[in-house]
Design a binder for these strands. Structure first.
Length: 490
DNA sequence: AAGGACCCCAACCGCTGTCCA
DNA sequence: TTGGACAGCGGTTGGGGTCCT
């Protein structure tokens, strides 16, 4: 795909020793596309010495690449378990949600998307942003946008009344930060889904590992920031599951550790390496073509993001919802807490525009088949109104309504296992003022902080042991007061 | 068929955070 | 405490590919 036009070696060899070009020890450093041979050298080196100490690669392997470049190449293209190919709908959805929560924290987002790199996500997002901005569409689906807005107001009051378990972090947030964080509340859109998801998720996989958030915690975890190699893999995968679970509807998928090779020295790397080696001669025959053209199986077949994100969710936002539910219990009018009438109208309009999706008054989310799940219509329909939206957690917490309003199977019906996020892009969505990029967030701390208080929300009768197990696990984690286990928040 | 617009994405760049002497 | 080294992150660039007119 890429040829050497942009980063021609001739020019690359001469400049900027500090960041990729120039020379080290008199050795000219190469820039531009990597060749298969270079990839092979790097792979071999990493296999032998492990990741890290990237600057030593050039010294020890003979690669004419700076450590930075090596790291990047490894992280983005050579490391095992990389998932190539376009994003799945679930991934797209997760990206949206993560971005609504985290802003342009690509690395954090990547940590939630096994096999995906920050660069990939960043590229995806940037193109999406451009596209949507060009189209005058909101960056986030309407539901996210509105829910975020509404919950922001809500949480403002909530926060002022009820400090999160780790106030030190939260209290330091500026209003804008809080807003940004709260912007993530749209995730609560999927609470119902999450609940239902839990029902189908193996208990073992739902065991909470929220404390294993990668946020910041991985930063200094030298070895594999991406959590897919070396000893870090397992825990990372776990936290991926959990954090993901906060955000994702529960797919039909599972993070199959059995199929997913967590060992860097395992097949994936081996396969990749082998394939590279196999291909290398072809490339080296004449000129070294950019190795990024090497075929890289999209996924080894056994690992699909789709299948890895089915963790019952326990969004940190749940806490906020619970608070709201409690507020409702106290006779508070949910409408006061956030959505303007206009916003509500918008939601309603959206919901009403879809047959059968008129918000119900009993808090039961509209039942939809997974097939109809689309961003633009699912959003308002999941929470056609604030009141309805907040009813979900309430039901859960009261441990009764699921049964009362709808049985679990109904909830399961709305699982957007294949949310067609991409469809959202094609929607004729309303013109947006572009709230998007403004949502740059520094902190996911809030989400994590909210978790503890959301833990007790489970135990739904039939919802099965999954939820219960998760709950227990979470309770254990959070109620032990072991906040110190929390990875450092920004 | 040609040319422009747009998309995709690899790679670079600058900066920041952390470790360690 | 300080400064260098290193790793990592986020923003940006720009070329090839694709789509559209």
């Amino acid at each position: 795909m890429m040829t050497n036009n942009k980063h021609s070696n001739s020019t690359a060899l001469s400049d900027d020793a500090s960041s990729g070009g120039g020379s080290i020890g008199g050795v000219a450093l190469k820039k531009g596309p990597w060749t298969a041979t270079e990839d092979s050298i790097l792979i071999e080196y990493v296999n032998k010495h492990g990741e890290g100490n990237w600057n030593a690669v050039q010294k020890n392997s003979g690669l004419s690449r700076c450590g930075k470049s090596c790291r990047l190449r490894w992280a983005n293209h050579l490391r095992p378990n990389l998932k190539k190919g376009s994003f799945t709908p679930d991934e797209e959805r997760l990206i949206l949600e993560l971005h609504s929560k985290l802003g342009n924290k690509w690395a954090r987002m990547a940590a939630q998307l096994p096999g995906r790199t920050d660069n990939e996500i960043k590229n995806y997002w940037n193109t999406r942003v451009k596209r949507r901005q060009r189209a005058g569409l909101p960056l986030y689906p309407n539901d996210m946008h509105k829910q975020g807005t509404s919950t922001f107001h809500h949480n403002q009051s909530y926060l002022s009344q009820q400090p999160p378990p780790n106030p030190s972090n939260f209290s330091s947030l500026s209003p804008s930060q809080q807003q940004k964080q709260n912007f993530g509340t749209p995730l609560s859109l999927f609470e119902p889904l999450n609940l239902s998801s839990a029902a189908s998720y193996p208990a073992q996989q739902t065991t909470a590992h929220f404390l294993s958030t990668p946020i910041n915690g991985f930063k200094r975890f030298r070895g594999d920031n991406y959590g897919f190699s070396h000893s870090y893999s397992n825990s990372t995968s776990l936290f991926n599951q959990n954090l993901t679970s906060q955000l994702l509807p529960p797919p039909s998928i599972q993070f199959n550790l059995g199929n997913y090779d967590l060992n860097p020295q395992h097949t994936m790397m081996q396969n990749q390496y082998d394939s590279t080696r196999t291909l290398a001669p072809d490339f080296s025959s004449k000129l070294e073509l950019p190795s990024n053209q090497l075929s890289q199986p999209a996924s080894n077949g056994d690992y699909q993001i789709n299948d890895s994100l089915s963790i019952p969710s326990n969004s940190g936002l749940l806490d906020a919802l619970i608070q709201e539910a409690q507020a409702m219990g106290n006779g508070e009018d949910m409408k006061r807490q956030g959505l303007s009438s206009e916003q509500q109208d918008k939601c309603s309009d959206h919901g009403n525009a879809l047959a059968g999706d008129v918000p119900s008054n009993n808090g039961t989310p509209p039942l939809r088949s997974a097939g109809d799940q689309e961003w633009n219509d699912s959003s308002p329909n999941h929470f056609p109104s604030v009141g309805e939206k907040r009813k979900q957690p309430t039901d859960i917490e009261l441990n009764s309504t699921v049964e009362e309003d709808d049985d679990l199977s109904n909830l399961l019906d709305i699982i957007p296992s294949a949310m067609l996020v991409s469809d959202f892009y094609n929607d004729g969505g309303e013109i947006s003022n572009g709230q998007s990029s403004g949502v740059t967030d520094e902190d996911t701390g809030l989400d994590m902080q909210q978790l503890p208080s959301s833990i007790h929300t489970t135990t739904t009768n039939t919802t099965n042991t999954t939820i219960t197990n998760t709950t227990l696990s979470m309770n254990h984690d959070w109620t032990t007061g072991d906040w110190n286990n929390l990875p450092e928040m920004c």
